[in-house]
Amino acid sequence: MSPYIVRELIPGHSDAVRIPIMGQALCAGFPSPADDFLEGALELPRWLAPNPPATFAWNISGDSMRAAGIFDRDLAVVDRSLKPGNGSVVVAAIDGEMSVKRLRIEGNVARLAFENPDLPAFAVEEAAEGEIWGVVRFSIRWHIARAGLVR
């Protein structure tokens, strides 16, 4: 990063951050058309979400990442400010679909691998189009049957 970065001090609670920040941006020029639609953001503790503006939550659907400990109906928290490296679990857009994969980098070849021994890995270039959306920082799973997402 550049030498000019000044870490923002986010006002309010020290134990929880909003992702990214509770709205209410007052515009100097034009009143924001979003003003009437801002709502409470998702809350995560600061130590789990150190960079709120780059943090997004995704639902997981499917079982191809079982061996990585990610199961159907889990929640993945993705930090787009993390640099993907060999072994990162990533959300990637592959042929117009968002999916969770393990990134494997060997030499000059990047592969997006299933974490399921029955399924093959494939190189990013093999897919018609593949782009890494963000790195999964952690995932959440519910140990209560049929637990729903509730605010």
């Binding site: 550049s2 920040i21 058309p33 979003a34 009437d36 801002l38």
Partner: peptide
């Protein structure tokens, strides 16, 4: 607008890092 307002707040948070 809920989405656009949230994404706007995120971009401004990045600007404030600079």
């Amino acid at each position: 607008y809920t989405l656009y307002g949230d994404m706007s707040a995120r971009t401004n948070a990045v600007y404030r890092d600079f």
